[in-house]
Design a protein around this nucleic acid. Structure first.
Lengths: 326, 326
DNA sequence: GTTATACCTGTAACCGGTTACACACATCAA
DNA sequence: TTGATGTGTGTAACCGGTTACAGGTATAAC
């Protein structure tokens, strides 16, 4: 790799001058600039970001921490973040936390050691000491705190929406699947659904689950119909679980949506490709990722911020696992 | 952030001694070591990886380039890579190329600028000059070249398998969906399928597609049954497209697998949750990711390598979109 | 003619680590 | 006693950039 000294040597100038050309600051004579640029081309030189980062105490690196990229909701978030970051020449150091505190701390630690200029994190404990002590901007994605920048969807309203829509379409014996208790948004949507069902005085059952894993989803779907065989409406904790429920209903010969209605959550890309396609609560994941990136960029570049948090509205997507409303 | 000087000052020693303690090399008196370690604890010091990286010309960063994390096949690959890398304390700089040459070059460029010690890339052109000129280890994942380290699945055999299994189960008018022409593995599986169908002298049709996108998949599924309404066996280019075909069949009132059999490719997690669940060709994506990481680590740490490439066998997963064989 | 100001460039310190090298001291064998 | 060897530590160069500062020249203002 050519260094700035090589370029300076070839162009017959000092490294300071090359640096000025590179960064477009200070005075540089037009003729000199030409020579330097030619030397850069000839040597195929690109500046060493590490050296730059050491002096400036700033890199072009941003840390992104997500629970599990294998859950189809997160790739969309990640893509949104990446695409926006790319536009401002930031790159991502990426890690999966598995909702595990240890791994999370470990990643945050190495983010810092690598001079990242900002962090986007989807953590269950945004109040953790580790985050409070951070000296660089952070935005929480898909998770909330009152006092730190965050981008998230209105999960509670999503839960209410799901309940209202399934009730409006005639379900009487509703089963609400409760996602992992330590995952904030999962609880929000659960509570929203319970709120509405209670309000309407309907009977309902709750199935507790502890993860969003693909393999465990099948088991819960089986439990669901074993424990509550008469249910005629299922509000699932996310689209993966909803898919498993849909499949189990199919296996048991229940007609969807005639015998059981099913509503998912997230609106992952595959939910529209299911047969019947899945009615669900849409979160604008890609947009949310972009917005988190946007916010972080503003924070990092010290611009004035009007709103430091953004809550996205959620939307009922009517597809084929719910009945048509008359 | 505390620096090594702060630690040295507090412990009453020179920075060299602190560095020795940190790296466990050279001689350090036990008493001195204690003092230094105490200072480190007191100041909550962690070494600046950027400074370290500058001097050593090596970081603990690895570049990972994938086409599109939004395609459910890739998160598994990514997870495999990450988990293995994590074990050796490497971190990932991650990017999506969208199979786009420009973006790809751009990422490789910044990987280098950030002193990554190795790269894992899923590119359509492993022979590109940019890769030939690289001075750091690289392994190609899900893509092949004869002369560079790579980890991939036997796509051609996968295509053959799909054809053999669908034929064995009685399909006579087979439609093969051809994935994007510029994507190597897509062509392999296509050619494998064609090879077998030809060999058996069966009539077959081909539907050409240009992406694996979720939104376009629906359109192709519609085209498929419009152009070839009598098909009784579909070999899809991947599981996403297969899902769309399954859905379209459902919409048209065709019974699966009685009227049409469908075989996908990849075995993404959701394919087992479809109703009916999707018969498909399994690629051990997570394992492949891990293996690519393993190989790269060996390359980076200069160990002796016996095999520098690894081809994974592929496997037919019999589920419910194919008939039971008698 | 003097002074202010803009323009142009180089020297060297600095960022925070690692390590080559020098040096001091202790121990032990010849 | 001498010298070889092992132990323990500090000084300073180095990695490859950025930038404060100094100094030189040209032009304009007074």
């Amino acid at each position: 790799m050519a260094t700035i000294k090589d370029v300076a040597g070839r162009a017959g100038v000092s490294v300071a001058t090359v640096s000025r050309v590179l960064n477009g600051n200070g005075y540089v004579h037009e003729d000199t600039r030409q020579k330097v640029e030619e030397a850069i081309r000839a040597l195929n030189y690109t500046p060493n970001e590490v050296a730059r980062s050491l002096y400036k105490k700033k890199s072009k690196l941003v840390g992104l921490l997500l629970p599990d990229i294998t859950n189809p909701y997160f790739p969309q978030l990640a893509r949104g973040v990446e695409d926006r970051m790319q536009e401002n020449d930031y790159r991502l150091i990426f890690g999966n936390s598995d909702e595990n505190r240890e791994k999370e701390m470990d990643y945050i630690q190495t983010f810092i050691q690598n001079h990242v200029v900002g962090i986007i994190s989807s953590t269950n404990d945004p109040g953790a000491e580790m985050y409070a002590e951070l000296r660089i901007p952070i935005v929480f994605l898909d998770r909330t705190t009152s006092d730190r920048p965050s981008v998230y969807a209105d999960g509670r309203e999503g839960g209410r929406l799901a309940a209202r829509e399934i009730i409006k379409r005639g379900s009487k014996r509703i089963t609400i699947i409760q996602g992992p208790a330590h995952v904030g948004p999962a609880m929000d949507r659960y509570e929203g659904a319970v709120e509405v069902v209670r309000e309407r005085g309907l009977s309902y059952d709750v199935l507790k689950t502890t993860s969003f894993s693909f393999t465990e989803a099948e088991g819960w779907a089986q439990d669901l119909f074993r424990l509550y065989p008469d249910t005629d409406g299922v509000i699932a904790s996310n689209d993966i679980v909803a898919s498993a429920v849909l499949q189990e209903a199919f296996r048991l010969g229940k007609r969807v949506p005639e015998d059981v209605q099913i509503i998912g959550f997230d609106d992952i890309p595959l939910s529209r490709l299911l047969a019947p396609s899945l009615s669900t609560i849409h979160q604008p994941a890609y947009e949310m990722g972009r917005e988190a990136a946007e916010l972080l960029i503003q924070l990092m570049e010290g611009q004035h911020i009007e709103r430091k948090s953004k809550q996205y509205p959620v939307q009922f997507i009517e597809r084929q696992t719910t009945r048509k409303v008359d």
